[in-house]
Every structure is written in C-alpha cells, then in structure tokens.
Nucleic acid binder design. Structure first.
Lengths: 186, 186, 186, 186
DNA sequence: CATGAATGAGGCTTCATTCAT
DNA sequence: TATGAATGAAGCCTCATTCAT
C-alpha cells in the first residue's frame, strides 16, 4: 500500500522533528501504528528511513517557490520579498529546521540534506540572478551570508515572538531595518 | 588527585566536542585512560559530567574579556573590536560551539549552558553599556541579533576559510562590510 | 508463541523461588534458555516479570478451593479440613511461600501479591462464612490469627518433617491438638 | 578507637534493619559518617560486618531474661508472663526481627544467627524447665510451636495495633485468649 | 588508624535489526 | 505485504572491594 508508506513517512517526520535522528524506530513505529519491522522492510534501515522522510519534506516545503522573487526589478522589493518569504517558511517549520541544522552541525547528515548549505546556495543563486537581470554589481556571497545570518538568528536565538506571529506593522518595521543594511551599503 | 579529574575533564571535552552528549561514557573513559566507573565516582552521572566539562570550558574560553570592548568610545572601533574578537574566539572553538548549538537546538541542554542565549545576552549587555557610556540611542536588541546572525552564519554556513585563517587584509575588508551595515543605519 | 512465554514464567518462578526478587534477569534468562532481552520485550521490566510470575502461580496454587470448606456444618470438620488443606498446600509450596513472606517482610512487594495478608483475609472470610451459615458466634479475627500462626510456625520454624510427609496417624494427632484449642474455648 | 567501631555498629544496625543484608556498604558508611573503606579495615567484608552487628544486637536485646519466667510455679502465670514478655520484646524490635526472619527465610544467614530457631529453642527449653520444676507432663515442642506461631502471627500479619500499643485491658483479654488454648487442652 | 582514589564485575535496560511465518 | 518473536551489542550505572598514602 502506498497508503501505509505515506503514513509511515508522515508519522516518522513528526517523531524525527521532535527527537532528531536519535528518535528510535520503536517510537516511529508507534506513531505510525505499524509494526517496527515494517519500517525495515520498507526502508531498509533507520538511516534510509530518515533520509527518505527528510528529502520528501524538503521537496514539499522548501524547494517550491525558491526563485520566484528573483524576477522582481526593484532590489528593495526583492529583498523584502525574499526575507519575508524565507522567515515565514522557516518560522512555520521551525522545529523541523532546527532539527536539521542540529543534525547537520553534528555531522550526522549526508550532503544531500545539508540544509544550511541549501539555504545559502539558493540565496546566492537568487541574488546572482537578480543582479544579472537588473545589471547590478552585488557581492552575492556576502549578501547571502548576511541574509542567512538573519534567518539563523531567528531560528536559534531566544525569541519573544516568532516571525509569523508578528503583526503587519511589526513585520514591516523589522523588514525595513534588515533591508536598509543592504541598500545603503552599496 | 586534582590531576586525574582535570585529565578526565580534558578528555571528556574532546569526546563531547566530537560526539555531543551522545558520546558514551565508555568513550570518555577510554580517552581519559580511566575506568568507566571512575567517571561516575567523580561526577555522579553522564549529564553531570557533561555539564561540568562544558561549564569549565565556557568559563575559560568565553567569559573572559567579554565586556572589555564596551569601554571603547568610538562606536566603529567598538563594533570592529567586538566582531573581530567574537569571530576569533568562535572560529577557534568552532567544533565546541557547533556542538553546543546543536544540542541547544535539540533542547538537550540545561539553561546554564545555553550558549546562543549567553552570546545574545552578553552582546546586548555590551551594546547597552557602550550606548550608555557614550550617550547613544541604539536598538541594542536589534544590533545583538544582527551580530549574532553574523556569528552564526560563520559557524553554520559552508566556509572557504575560517575567520581566524583570513589574512589581515581580508579580515579588515570583511569587518568593514559588517560594520557599515550598523553605522549608516543610525 | 504462548509456549515461550509460559516457559519463561515457569523458569522465572524457579529462579525467583530460589533467590527472591534479587534473582537477576540474567539468571532467569539462562534458566529459561532465552536471551535476556526477551524478558524485557515480554514483561517490560524485572518487577513486572516478577509480579506476573507470582500472580500466575498464586492463582493456580492458592485461590482454588479456598472457600470450599466453609460449607461444612460441623465446626470441628471445618477446622480440620481447613488446617489440613492449608498445611498441605503450604508445605508443598514451601519455598515459594517462604520467599514471598521474606520479600513481604522486607516491604519489597506490591499489595497485589501480599501473601500473608491474602492468607489472613481469606481465612477470616472463610470463618465468617462458616459462622454465618451455622449461626455461630465466632471471633473470626482471632481464629484467623491463630490459624495463621499455626501455618507460619510450620513454614518458619525448624521442622523434623514437613506436614505433607507425616503419616496419616501423625497428621491426625497433630490436627486434633490444633483443633481442640479452638473448640474448647467457645 | 573503640568509639568509631561502636559507632559503625550502631549505624550499620539501623541501615541493616531498614534494608537487610542488601543494604550497601556505602549506605552504612554514610550513616556512620565514616569512609567506606574503614568498614573493610575493621570488619573485613560486608558479611562479617553484618554478622558482627547482628550478633551484638541479639546479645543485647534477646538473650537477657530468657529463662527468668520458667521458675514461676503457676503454669497460667508462666504462660502469661512468657507471652507478654516475648510479644513486648518482639514488637519493640519489630523491624529488626522482621528483617532477620526475612533473611533467614531466604537462607542468607549463617546458622549462628538463626532467629526463628533461637526463639523456638529457647521456648522449648523454658517450657521443659517449667515442666520439670513443677512435675508436669507437657508436650513442650507443641507448646513452643504454638507460642512461636502466636509470635510470628503478630510479626507477619497485618496489625491494627502493635502489641506494645495495646491498653492493659486489651492486652489482658488477648493474653487470656491465648492462654486458655493451652490450659484446657491438658 | 583512617581515608581518597580507583576499579572489575555485574545489573537492568534499550536499540536497531533479523528470522520465520 | 505485514507482523510477532527473538536477539547481539551496547549503554548507564552500582556494588563490594583493593591500592597507596
């Protein structure tokens, strides 16, 4: 049954988000209401299960819409849109992202699911594309690092409010602060 | 013997840096060339050992010099000095810090060794102090987040070179970029 | 397989009878010719295993026939039958009972397998029932204590012969002595 | 220091009463405020310590006055005095006695501190002596068993009140019941 | 005499995984 | 396809005891 496989993936995701790769196959099996051994029949071993689950969710949640904003002509709008969008996505998937960064930091993940790298690389590409399309000379690497820094600080530092819980006013004020640091520089 | 205790702490530190809290007491014992049981006699349990080891290293490596720079009168110098100093310390203790951030992200650490919080808080205090002493109106929280973001990006993103491996020229160019984002804003 | 579970229970019983709750899970596993871990899969932990095993044997060996004798009309016959029956059962399960009393004395048992209490309570009930059915005024608590005392003395004091090894003549003489203490009193 | 040895014995007694022979040397050392190793220097090993401690307390609490009552001429008084005295001593040393019986039941004690045997034997001797002095024909073994049964039932069965907490009236009523069972028999 | 330091042996328990159906 | 049963390996921790001072 495709059904059962999908159900395992969903349940496993929840468990992995909560506990990372350390989560036990038993916990996953319980959450999925499936015999432990079924996981092994379907995914070979825990690592494969983990990778499958994470890849599947990364595709669904992160790859989509990645480069849409690059087309915007105004750089301020481009930045605003990219920061807002990424902070939204990240804060909505906060626990997943935290877990993935943690596992990455501990070197437990294969390169194919290196989230920080993915974020950084896709930012660099987006910025490059924007620069090219608008004939701008931008230090895309530095911008990407700065943006990533912003995103990471939202994920890792203590927060009063998550980004997606801010009012529109607060959100705009915050975005303005972030954006100005990029624009005046140039 | 203080000697053997110290030796355990040093060895445990190396093991914990490599493997995080997951490291086994056996690994620690092997590295320290000590019977496993000795760890328990001396530290009670694995968690206590971990906390003791981490606290000790945090005190030695991070608390020192924390507020020195606040006294600087020129804000640019203040920022330069604080960024340079923190990036240096962090990149020299890269693996330790990565591990601590990872464990923190997974919620495995007690508040007493919450490194991201410590970094953020001490930055905020330092900036506040600088602002007060020089009669400046600074959004210290925002600055602290921006600075933390810079530090985190250096720790987490893929790097060509570590900060402490940069030439003086590269280092200065980098610092200038970072600093300008703060100054022009105000 | 119900088979293996039953086999574990039987082996565990033998080991627990010999060593009490102190018996190690390893000993049980060896006796049952099963991997140690199997015990935990099946019973959760040592305590649960112990309780399960003991409950099962108590049900099989002690609860049966408990109140049969109460129906007897003649009080002497009632006493004779109850003493004979209980001494038989107890002396046949001597080591089990001794172990349970020992663990109970040390406060190591949950109330559900408190053997002394069970014996005393069921005696009291049986006597009450006999008294009621035959319209007698009996101090059932005192009788139950006296009977329990007899049983305990057989279990705990040094014995030349176990009750179940006595000849019929010896057994009758003994029973007569015990019974007369109850009857003449009233 | 005799002092420290005595202090260890006293503390060890408390711990052993609470936990039996299972009590750890660490617990004993803590209670005695002495280094664990001191126990071994003084007593060789845990078993020796245990035996020493128990022998010492048995001498102090049980051997004294054992045969005093045998001299009484009236058998009823003799029984009353012996039952009252033993129940008093036993209920005052309830936990110690329970522990000793428990360890005895589990076969953990050397014959020299077999408490049930000691009680039974001394009762038999006392009764024999009383019979001899008063020219009576008593089945001393049976009496001793009956008496022991009474004592054991007080130690092991659930109790509303300990013997030493009974009012004088209650105590007398109880003693009368017990005694009559012996006298009318003959 | 007393102790701080250290340990080998062993206990309970959990984990990912295989076997047999 | 799915699972109930079983397990080897390993983890944390405790125990009685010895060593060296």
């Amino acid at each position: 049954m495709r059904d059962k496989t999908e159900q395992i993936i969903q349940s496993a995701l929840q468990v992995f988000i909560r506990k990372g790769f350390q989560a036990t196959t038993q916990e996953v099996a319980n959450e999925a209401k499936v015999a432990e051994v079924t996981l092994f029949r379907k995914f070979g071993n825990k690592q494969q299960l983990f990778i499958t689950v994470i890849k599947s969710v990364l595709e669904k949640k992160f790859y989509a819409h990645l480069m849409e904003q690059a087309k915007t002509h105004d750089t301020e709008d481009f930045l605003r849109s990219i920061i807002d969008n990424r902070l939204n996505v990240l804060s909505k998937n906060r626990n997943l992202v935290k877990m993935l960064i943690a596992e990455n930091l501990m070197g437990n993940l294969p390169p194919e699911i290196n989230l920080p790298d993915m974020i950084f690389t896709s930012l660099t590409h987006g910025i490059d594309q924007h620069a090219q399309q608008n004939n701008l000379d931008i230090d895309s690497t530095h911008w990407a690092r700065q943006l990533s820094g912003i995103f990471l600080s939202h994920l890792i530092l203590p927060n009063e409010k998550l980004y997606n819980e801010l009012s529109e006013g607060e959100r705009n004020r915050l975005l303005n602060k972030y954006i100005s640091a990029f624009l005046i520089n140039e």
